[in-house]
Design a protein around this nucleic acid. Structure first.
Lengths: 412, 412
DNA sequence: GCTATTTGTTCAGCGATTGAATTATTTGCT
DNA sequence: AGCAAATAATTCAATCGCTGAACAAATAGC
């Protein structure tokens, strides 16, 4: 979790410029083609004079650069297009998961500029050791980034578990972590980050949340509100509303894995009964398909399942259909409640989407009151396996775009 | 639904004052004691000079007034307290429900200054006729308000059904309405509203949503995020996140009545199976308690049920317990998903809260993963029967507080 | 080569905030 | 009473950043 934006304070004289810097930079980031200053003026309602002044600041701060004059028809002085700089600030994404460590660097434009994945079973590894290895990988990433004129301005760490406001990992069941003070442990290593006002040096967040953010910022831009479901051993969801992650009162939203889909059904390790995880979790699907659970690596099991289903194996198909139906019941609840029109199947579900999608859609159609007027899209995630690490790094980069003033004050 | 705030446009020169007007007025509205200019300066971070200038505008525009000097200890010139004016702009709230029409006027401070309720079974009444009677009541309310120097600046209408962006009532099953173009029908009557920039003359919204807003603005101030459940014939919910109503992509959020609590259970008129409404809707409870469903008026049936339960009637107690359990399963889903810490039982549930609360809490404890760390409060609504009308009127008044510039521009 | 057109910059003007100085009003102390 | 300290609110010149119009730059079409 992060301690984000300050509560709406007074609008001071200088805030005006801060707001317009963010506004213009945001437009440049959101545009599908490099906009000219004139485009930005009409889009924002500011005068061309103001936009020019703002853009000058952004250029001086290395946040944007002028691109080749875009070919345009008609008369008139040719426009100079503005694009996000491919140097300057960048975000560091870190991920600790059950069977791998991942590190990546994402620049302002959302491009993944560096990526390292280390396959290793982390359940027997102590948290401090796992983080030490992650820091080692991050150091290499920093050096790599520096060679491309990228400065790391913040890091975000993804962990599959419940994280509190201070970054304490309360519980990461599948990792075997409990009350791990991540910020303290990381503070014992030399810092890799150049601190910038407005950007926390380190945030720790739930893997499902960051994967959802990754999806939000993926190219091409998708909807601003959706549900992203990470189907791993546990099932987590990231809820994105109006382009912002919804974290809940304590940051523990999205526990879709424990939605009761059969209230009097199988007991769950959470203490409840009939939780979705018991019917659509990876272990549940694998064992329902009759696969030996000896094949521990999660991605291997998923791949094997897809292989079997592809070959028409009846057990695998039935297991997937049943899991999809259970998932559909939960998704129908979410859609009834939040009126979302897009559901993204991520994590292990992405590879299984061809078989999960039909029963999920069937349940939505049957159970969602408003389905007749507003169709719901269900699609696999576009990001690959380490979506959370990419989302983590991207969330840092996005923070610079949302609050460029801090970075500009630094490089002044 | 309403066509609210424009998409974050450019921050112009004058926006600065607009923003600070809203900021200062908002602080005055949120304060528990009348703040002085100096209090506001420290609270907002603005200088005292700026606050004085802003307050002068607000005083000139009749939005605030100076109260008696608050008794304060210590030396120094005594402060002049600022309070929201009890005259000036006010909101008109309208409600069409199954068995009553309601109209009320709420001032800036959130006080209900006028209230009329007309008990009548509206199912046999044509929509146009129902609205005509409502307009008649509203005319009397307007005259009443004018005598107290209140100006109606907008109206909000609550309807128990699905409303689209344009104010069209797509479906109000219990009222028997379908595709009713409310704004068109109301436009045929003489206007009662003095239009103000930034405040739509009429918005139409779901009853459950507006009831939740009423709860949000009730005194004393409660939490900024909560789930408000309106238990009537149908079950609707209003989701309030960070002090704002969450409406969903198409404005159809909160359909908690159709969350599947027994996926293979009783068929529901929505086409699904095992929806909450079939287990915890008013009709379901009443018939489970063995009460003749001949007693049609909903409030009567609820009152009788409470009476029986109070007297220890076994059937009534069992019916309420079962309904509470079903409700608890649905609430557990919501809490797992959104991590809310407060659930308000409103509408018909308010009176039944003593019996519904225990089973709801039991299900939450059993099924919510994070319940151990973050207790969930379940309490009855503080507003009475016509909560939606009060919430509707209050939402209009709140809009003035959020955007005072429009009103000030009007009054010269 | 000239005109129309569009882009981007320059500059005086202005509105709103700022910070310091000033005035206003009360409490506490002698 | 009288005076100093303390707090509240206002006044005013300075400054920051937006505005609008005029101007310079660069291209297409005739």
């Amino acid at each position: 979790m992060s301690l984000t934006h300050a509560p709406a304070g007074g609008v001071r004289q200088g805030s005006l410029r801060e707001l317009n810097l963010a506004l213009v930079l945001g437009r440049i980031a959101a545009a599908d083609r490099p906009p000219s200053r004139a485009d930005l003026a009409t889009a924002t309602g500011l005068t061309r004079a103001t936009v020019s002044a703002v853009v000058e600041d952004l250029l001086a701060g290395q946040l944007v650069s002028e691109s080749e004059p875009a070919p345009r028809s008609g008369a008139g002085r040719p426009a100079r297009g503005l694009v996000l700089a491919d140097q300057g600030p960048a975000g560091l994404g870190l991920e600790v998961n059950v069977d791998y460590l991942a590190v990546c660097v994402v620049d302002l434009a959302g491009q993944v500029r560096h990526r390292t994945v280390h396959r290793v079973d982390l359940r027997p590894v102590a948290p401090a050791d796992a983080l030490a290895r992650l820091v080692e990988m991050a150091g290499a990433a920093r050096d790599d980034a520096a060679r491309e004129d990228l400065t790391l301005v913040g890091a975000a760490l993804a962990v599959p578990g419940l994280i509190d406001d201070a970054g304490l990992v309360r519980l990461a069941p599948n990792l075997g972590w409990r009350d791990v003070p991540v910020p303290e442990l990381l503070a014992q290593h030399p810092p890799l980050i150049e601190e910038v006002p407005g950007v926390p040096a380190l945030t720790v967040d739930n893997e499902a949340n960051l994967a959802a953010l990754g999806e939000l910022h993926s190219q091409p831009p998708g909807p601003l509100s959706f549900l992203h479901i990470s189907g791993e051993v546990g099932i987590g969801a990231g809820i994105v509303l109006d382009g912002a992650l919804f974290r809940g009162v304590r940051g523990w939203s999205g526990e879709i894995g424990h939605l009761p889909v059969h209230p009097e059904g199988r007991p769950c390790r959470c203490g409840g009964q009939g939780c979705l995880e018991q019917y659509a979790g990876q272990e549940a699907i694998v064992s329902a398909a009759g696969l030996a659970r000896a094949e521990l690596p999660a991605d291997t099991a998923t791949a094997r399942l897809a292989q079997l289903a592809d070959a028409g194996d009846a057990d695998a198909l039935r297991a997937l259909h049943d899991a999809g139906t259970a998932l559909g019941v939960a998704v129908a609840s979410v859609v009834n409640l939040l009126d979302l029109d897009t559901v993204v199947l991520g994590g292990g579900y992405a590879a299984l989407a061809p078989w999960l999608r039909p029963p999920v859609l069937a349940e939505i159609d049957a159970r969602v009151l408003t389905a007749a007027w507003s169709p719901v899209t269900v699609r696999p995630s576009t990001l690959g396996a380490e979506a959370a690490a990419v989302g983590a790094a991207g969330s840092v980069a996005r923070r610079i775009i949302a609050q460029p003033a801090g970075w500009l004050a630094r490089s002044g």
